[in-house]
C-alpha cells in the first residue's frame, strides 16, 4: 500500500470524524441559548419547586429564552432559590412586577419555568441600562419610595412574584379538605 493512498484514507477518516462532530454539535444538541450565548442571571424564590431540575427551559409564551442554571436553598429562609440564565437580549426588558411560575408540559412531561412578562417602561429600561443622568436617579429613588414606577430587571435581580409548582399530594389534600368543609 503506497503512502499517498494511506494519507488520503486517513484524511478521509479524520474528515468523517469532523463531520460527525459537526452533526452532533449542530443538529443533535441545542447550541446553548440561541444567539451569541451571552446571558444575564435572575433569581427567584419559590415555596416549592416540585421536580424542577437544573437545565430546565425558561419560556415566555412557549418560546425558550433561557435555562435554569442551578437550584439552591436560601441560607436564612430555607426556601428554594432558582438561579436562571436568560438571554442577554432580554436584559432590562422585563419589569420587576413580572411573575414566574413552575409549569408542567403535558401530563407526564418535564417541568419548566414560565415567565409572564410585564414590559418595563422606557425610563426604567434606560435607568437599568445605565443611560440615566444623576438627576434622574434621584427621581427614580423617589418613584421607588412611592411605588409610582417599577424598575426593570437586570443581572442579579430577584423576581418577587412567583408561583410554586403544583404538587399532586397537596392538591388532593386541599380537595379533600374542601370536601370535608362542605
Amino acid at each position: 500500500m503506497n503512502t499517498r493512498k494511506i494519507e488520503i484514507l486517513v484524511g478521509l477518516f479524520v474528515a468523517l470524524g469532523v463531520i460527525a462532530f459537526a452533526v452532533l454539535a449542530l443538529k443533535v444538541a441545542n447550541s446553548g441559548i440561541s444567539g451569541s450565548g451571552e446571558y444575564y442571571v435572575l433569581n427567584a424564590k419559590f415555596e416549592n419547586i416540585g421536580s424542577l431540575k437544573a437545565r430546565a427551559p425558561i419560556k415566555v409564551g412557549g418560546v425558550v429564552i433561557g435555562r435554569v442554571e442551578g437550584i439552591s436553598i436560601h441560607p436564612q429562609e430555607f426556601v428554594p432559590v432558582v438561579n436562571m440564565k436568560i438571554d442577554a437580549n432580554y436584559e432590562c426588558q422585563f419589569s420587576d412586577t413580572t411573575s414566574v411560575s413552575i409549569l408542567t408540559s403535558g401530563i407526564l412531561g418535564e417541568q419548566y419555568l414560565g415567565i409572564s412578562p410585564v414590559i418595563a417602561s422606557e425610563s426604567a429600561r434606560q435607568s437599568c441600562l445605565g443611560n440615566d443622568s444623576a438627576g434622574n436617579s434621584e427621581a427614580d429613588e423617589l418613584d421607588d419610595l412611592f411605588g409610582v414606577e417599577s424598575k426593570a430587571l437586570k443581572n442579579g435581580d430577584m423576581i418577587a412574584d412567583t408561583k410554586s409548582a403544583l404538587v399532586l399530594e397537596e392538591l388532593i389534600g386541599q380537595f379533600l379538605f374542601n370536601q370535608g368543609g362542605e
Binding site: L24, A25, K27, V28, A29, N30, S31, G32, P57, V64
Partner: peptide, 15 residues
C-alpha cells in the same frame, strides 16, 4: 424527533 432532541441534549454536558 429533532427538536425535542435538541431541547434535551446539551453540547457541554452530553457531547
Amino acid at each position: 424527533f429533532w427538536s425535542i432532541m435538541q431541547a434535551q441534549v446539551s453540547f457541554e454536558k452530553d457531547i
